[in-house]
Design a protein around this nucleic acid. Structure first.
Lengths: 248, 248
DNA sequence: TTCCTTGATATGTGATTACATTATACGTAG
DNA sequence: CTACGTATAATGTAATCACATATCAAGGAA
């Protein structure tokens, strides 16, 4: 189905004030471009590992699947390549990057530096008002994995939101952007590891690390917050390096 | 002369060894796209502060100036926006980012984390063979600033090469990419600060910090290497924050 | 005068087309 | 049967066109 790009007429309508009561608050107009939507869609697909590593992508194939022309796809793909979520080979072909052990170790090391910095900074001023929300998210995270039929997607989302709630609190927007790019690159592996860990009925220690992190934030203890985060990243990373059978 | 893109046949040709003496080493072909060339050009312009912060750019304006169509410019501009070297406003207009004091502080903090990590890692295994080259670069750096008519461009290049020689030595390609993106963002301010510092006849302490860094690398002393780097970044940063009159 | 409307211009985005290069398959010589 | 050369198809890049939207200036009403 083709997508309507014209949403302006409503903003000029005369009885707009009357409508604003019946309608949701002016119905956020979609300043999005098609390329942005394609980008987000592909980002989510990649982040949740719904596309095989090493798989080659073609612009025409994607455009056909999405029902658009080459242009928005091209822009989205190029952007993902710059962000490291896709790989632009010198042959001018695009593929989903393969995660090697060494690349994974490097990314983990960088994450420790950047996300460690973020939690340290956030710990100093972390608002007590945000603590209950964090605890609730961690409860959701644990429960969705303990179900008889675990909801991995929900667990992944909760985990991501726990982390980024802290990162955002650091008040360093540029840092958050860089961390997001890192998550985009390790996302697929992270998601897969949750599945395998759950399948072997192994209790993930992540929930406890999150608990420790929340406690450290409550105490404004920067060192403890960093330690909790490092425990989280290292334990998940060790599991992936051991069981994930990454190439290399 | 049109460029041959097929180099496969020649590699199999029999008399290739004979040719390699008469011809330059097979004359590296340019696998570049127009967009890549535009990107590099704009990157260098931005890095050396040749465009005013806050200035709005138009695709058609750039395309006209460069003699190409919109397409390559579009791709280059979008890429620079993702890298943080340009800013894509919600109005869909593009402008050169303005460096505020707070943004500068944030970027410096991130640089300390990332470049600190890089020098620490590099210190462990830094090759003694690379030390003379570093020292020579530092000499070039110092001399080009001490001249009667200082060569700022040369000093900037030497400084950049000193730093990235170390970063490359860490063997973490992803990290180097991220640091490059950071330099792209602070590049203009850094370049300008060199000019002002030189104009006030103030001796830059950067050369001494570089010396300390080289010595630490020679000793494989990770802590000392990080300390030297931090000294370099902090001293330059303090000067910029004090004299650079950044907004905010 | 001030604020809003209105029209014209400019600009970014998306679609279509053309083209150079690369990948693949087929056929032929050895 | 293998290896190389050739032809066909596929793909990314670039140029051009079309259009919705943003920007800005002029004009008119309160």
């Amino acid at each position: 189905m083709p997508i309507r790009m014209s949403d302006r007429d409503v903003t000029k309508a005369p009885a707009i004030d009357a409508l604003s009561d019946t309608l949701p608050p002016l119905e956020r107009i979609s300043h999005d471009t098609l390329a942005m939507r394609v980008h987000r869609g592909m980002r989510d697909m990649l982040m949740t590992g719904q596309v095989q590593p090493g798989q080659k992508l073609t612009l025409r194939g994607l455009a056909g699947a999405l029902g658009t022309s080459l242009m928005p796809v091209r822009e989205a793909v190029h952007r993902l390549a710059v962000e490291g979520a896709l790989e632009a080979l010198p042959n001018r072909t695009i593929r989903v990057p393969v995660m090697t052990k060494s690349r994974f170790r490097e990314l983990r090391t960088i994450r420790l530096a950047l996300e460690g910095l973020a939690v340290e900074t956030a710990a100093a001023t972390f608002s007590a008002a945000a603590l209950p929300g964090m605890a609730k998210l961690n409860a959701v995270f644990g429960r969705s994995l303990e179900r008889r039929r675990p909801d991995y997607a929900e667990a992944f989302r909760a985990n991501k939101e726990i982390h980024f709630t802290v990162y955002e609190a650091a008040g360093m927007p540029q840092l958050v952007t860089m961390i997001e790019s890192l998550w985009l690159q390790i996302g697929p592996v992270l998601y897969m590891s949750m599945l395998t860990r759950a399948k072997e009925r192994a209790q993930s220690p992540a929930r406890d690390w999150h608990e420790a992190l929340i406690q450290a934030l409550r105490d404004h203890d920067a060192a403890a917050a960093r330690a909790a985060l490092e425990g989280d990243l290292m334990s998940a990373g060790d599991h992936i390096l051991a069981e994930g059978d990454l190439p290399d």
